[in-house]
Structures are given as structure tokens and as C-alpha cells.
Design a protein around this nucleic acid. Structure first.
Length: 446
RNA sequence: GGCUGGGUAGCAAAAGGUCACUGCGCCGGAGUGCAUAUCCGGAAAUCCAGGUUCAAGUCCUGGCCCAGCCUCCA
């Protein structure tokens, strides 16, 4: 089965041909670790996890290398560190913030069924590689030093703007921000900036400073995947300026036509129809959602939409996802099921990761009563069959079971008034009883 | 203003050609002491205008509307 992927570089869907089928390489931009990851951050993590699983299925587990970085140098981190740990020396405070946030990120996404990448490089451990690349870019005339900064000379890059589809001219015309006076062109991006003693910094030929945002991914990708690799992914908002600058730097430094052959971008996420923003008060973190919903429900809900489409994240959608998954699982023990994609599932995934079509295929498997194919496909997609309600941790299950038994006894004695009274009493506690052929079960109402 | 995507039933979400997929919701029936669960059946949609094609929801052009980017926010 041929894998087709949509490539932002060409704006077309095309068959995926790896550079080396024995070593398929992909890079995805990871989080800046200064705060809890929100559900929008979870989207690329889940989407590229599915791609990783698919590539491992096609090319073999040992033949795919997935790199997802941690950005642990950033002025937002510095600000957060100063705010949260005013008594600590800044570097120590920064280390606290990045360590704590990284740990939280790992816990949150593990609950979403996400596999760890093969390499998770941090910015702070790749400073020498960045400095080296900047030196090369200066030597080649693609970067210049100005007032302690080093900037990418975007005018020196022949087809700068080709990824995002914009020209230098229109960017200058449309610029709405005040341009720093030391920039030759408004679009020139900072690769290195000076740090005073109050900020984290590293020695460099241009003085003590810290890297700009884009150079980190150029340097880390080179370090772990080489000069040219197969797939680069991230959120659509990163297309410009982040990826545009990143690939310009890498191509100039390495004299290559491309940095990655295929560039993939996931669409944005809205919450209940609105843009997610702190000012609207609808900023929702993965961690908060995990207090109310099984992680697998969040994962399923994310994959119901095609990754390039915008997704409207709603409670109603989560309820539907929970109901659908419960129907798929049917109390089955997933632990000893194998992981493999059933043909119709693989076919849907191979068409530019058409996960909505995957869902249709799963429903058809469910209707066909082919339980093994359904369960193994779900496992291969990263679902472990665990719908434990996180809200149930404070519930006294034994007491509920006792009331259920009492109600069953009342029903057996045809004391329906008492039976209904018990059912109403539990309902008032948010517990819904479900009588079925196998007996009575209960669940927490939403 | 420029660039890039998207507009399919009440909601979500597929598809160049059969009775146009699927789920939730809704309606009817079966089911239970009743209510759930569960099962059976049903109603319901392609933003507008051109074009290409034997055939367009799908491809192309324009319009309208929505979103993202141009503000180191995934």
C-alpha cells in the first residue's frame, strides 16, 4: 500500500518516498517548556505520533527515527522563572521551570497514548552546534552581525518565502511591526542575541548571548537527522516565520536544495467555536482535561478530524468520542491483543493520514463483528482499551454496589417503589444505573 | 491590506459515477414493572455563480462567509 502525504512545500499530496527506507527520519517541533501544555499543543504531538506509528508499521520499528525537541531557552521561560522563583538565582530558577514543565509535559502526553520519540534534544545541550552553524552562515554571507546580534540575511536566500508562499516584497509591504534598526531587512530573523548578566547566556564569538528561536531546530535536526531528511512537521502557525527561517538557515549552511523533503502542518484548534486565548478564559490544558476524561477519549477526539482541518474542541465532541470508544471496547481485554492495522484502516491512514476515514473503517469492523481486527487496529493506533473515568477515583464503589444489590433485591420482591427510590438516590449523586442482560452496571453522568 | 487553508443534514465528519459512508442527536417500534442499556426501522445536507467532464459535493475560476499567518501562540 502506497503512503501519500500532503506536502506544504508543493501544496500537493504525493507518494512518500524515503531517502533511505532503512532509516526514515522525521522531525517535529516540540514544546517551549514554560507552562502546562494546552490541548492545542497536544494536536501535533498526537498527529505526528500516529504518523510515527504508521511509518514504523511500513518500514519496521527499527527503521524510523523520530526527533521531537524541547525548547528550553526562551524569554517566556526567563520571565516565568523570575516570577515563580524570585529568590533563586536566574539560571537555577530557569532550570526549575524547564525541568518541572518538561516532566509535566511527558506525563500529560503519555496519558494520551503518545510514544516517546527516539530522540528528544534540548536547546541547552546543542548550543555549540548552533554557534557552529551561525559561524558557517556568516562565512557564507547569509548572516551578519549587528549590535551584538547575529541575523539571518533573508535577502541572501534566493527563494526565501517558498514554504509559506510569500515574497520578501509583500512581507515588507505588509509588515505591521516596528523593525529593529539594526536589521538590513524587516524579515531578517535573530539567530543570536546578547544576554546581560541577568539573563541566561553562553559564550560565543559575538559575546555572551543566547540563541534565537529558529536556529535551534536547524542545529538539532542536523545533529540527529543529517543535512537532509524526510519529514518535518509542526503546527500550521509555525509555517511562517519559524519553518521558513529554519529551512533557509539549514539550506544555506549545507548548500542543499531542501532541508526536509516533506513538510507537514496540522491545522489549528478552536474551543467551543472560539479561538483559544487566555483573555477569553477558554484556555484549556491537557492536564485539566485529564481530570475529567480518560486520555484515550482525548486522543480519539483529536483524531476524528483530519489533521490539516481546523478542529473545534467541544465537550459534546468529547461525549461522542467517549460513547464511541466504549462501544468499540465492549469490555474487551486489550492487553493480550496484537497491534496491527486492518487493511481498510491502513488504507485510510495511507491517504495522507485520513483519520476520519479510519474511524469509518473502525465502525465497519465493529459492524462486521471482526473483533480481533478492530481491537488490533485500535491498539496499533495507540489505544490501550482503558476508559477508566478519572473522576471515579473519589467514588466509593463498594457502597454503590451495595445499593445496586439492595435495589435488585427490592425488584425481586416486586417492591418497585423502593427500587426506584434507590435509583433516584444514586442519580442525585451523579450515578446512572444501566440494567442490561448481563446485570446492572453504573457510570458517572457528565 | 497581503499570504495560506476551509465552507456537506440539528451537530461532527467522509466520497469524480450504485439505494451518496459513519457516529451523536432526533422520530417510530421492540425491550424492561417503569426508566436506562441493547436491538430494529426512519426522517434529514452538499454556501452562491460560472467552467471542464459522458458524469462535479469532489477538479478549475470568481463571489460571499469563516479560520490561521504576516505580532518568536501548536
Amino acid at each position: 500500500m502506497e503512503l501519500k502525504l500532503y506536502n506544504t512545500l508543493t501544496r500537493k499530496k504525493a507518494p512518500f518516498v524515503p531517502i533511505d527506507a532503512n532509516n526514515v527520519r522525521m522531525y517535529a517541533c516540540g514544546p517551549t517548556v514554560y507552562d502546562f501544555a494546552h490541548i492545542g499543543n497536544a494536536r501535533p504531538v498526537i498527529v505526528f505520533d500516529v504518523l510515527y506509528r504508521l511509518l514504523r508499521h511500513i518500514y519496521g520499528v527499527g527503521h524510523v527515527k523520530y526527533v521531537r525537541n524541547i525548547t528550553d531557552v526562551d524569554d517566556k521561560i526567563n520571565a516565568r522563572a523570575a516570577e515563580e522563583y524570585p529568590d533563586l538565582e536566574l539560571n537555577a530558577a530557569v532550570a526549575e521551570v524547564t525541568a518541572k514543565t518538561t516532566k509535566q509535559f511527558h506525563e500529560d502526553i503519555a496519558a494520551l497514548g503518545v510514544l516517546p520519540p527516539d530522540v528528544e534534544p534540548t536547546c541547552t545541550s546543542h548550543i555549540p552546534q548552533m554557534v557552529e552553524m551561525i559561524k558557517v552562515l556568516i562565512a557564507k554571507g547569509n548572516a551578519y552581525e549587528a549590535e551584538g546580534h547575529v541575523l539571518l540575511d533573508t535577502a541572501s536566500v534566493p527563494d526565501y518565502g517558498s514554504l509559506s508562499g510569500r515574497s520578501l516584497d509583500e512581507m515588507i509591504a505588509g509588515a505591521r511591526v516596528e523593525v529593529a534598526p539594526y536589521k538590513r531587512n524587516p524579515s531578517d530573523s535573530v539567530m543570536w542575541k546578547p544576554s546581560d548578566d541577568s539573563l541566561p547566556g553562553w559564550p560565543s564569538p559575538w559575546g555572551r548571548g543566547r540563541p534565537g528561536w529558529h536556529i535551534e531546530c536547524s542545529a538539532m535536526a542536523k545533529e540527529h537527522l543529517g543535512e537532509v531528511f524526510d519529514i518535518h512537521g509542526g503546527g500550521i502557525d509555525l509555517t511562517f516565520p519559524h519553518h521558513e527561517n529554519e529551512l533557509a538557515q539549514s539550506r544555506c549552511a549545507h548548500d542543499t536544495d531542501v532541508m526536509a523533503n516533506v513538510w507537514m502542518h496540522n491545522g489549528f484548534l478552536q474551543v467551543e467555536g472560539d479561538k483559544m486565548s487566555k483573555s477569553l478564559g477558554n484556555f484549556v490544558t491537557i492536564n485539566e482535561l485529564l481530570a475529567d476524561w480518560p486520555g484515550e477519549v482525548l486522543r480519539y477526539n483529536m483524531l476524528r478530524s483530519h489533521y490539516r482541518q481546523p478542529i473545534d474542541w467541544t465537550v459534546k465532541g468529547l461525549e461522542e468520542s467517549a460513547k464511541t470508544l466504549a462501544g468499540f471496547y465492549g469490555g474487551e481485554d486489550f492487553s493480550k491483543a496484537e497491534k496491527s492495522f486492518a487493511p481498510p484502516v491502513l488504507e485510510a491512514l495511507s491517504d495522507d493520514m485520513n483519520t476520519p476515514a479510519v474511524m469509518t473503517a473502525l465502525h465497519q469492523l465493529a459492524h462486521s463483528d471482526d473483533r480481533p481486527a478492530l481491537v488490533s487496529s485500535l491498539r496499533a493506533l495507540g489505544f490501550a482499551g482503558d476508559l477508566t473515568d478519572p473522576r471515579a477515583s473519589g467514588v466509593d464503589e463498594a457502597a454503590i454496589q451495595q445499593r445496586i444489590d439492595q435495589r435488585l433485591a427490592a425488584r425481586a420482591a416486586k417492591d418497585f417503589a423502593e427500587a426506584d427510590r434507590i435509583r433516584d438516590e444514586l442519580a442525585a449523586q451523579g450515578i446512572a444505573l444501566k440494567d442490561g442482560p448481563e446485570g446492572t452496571t453504573w457510570e458517572l453522568v457528565r
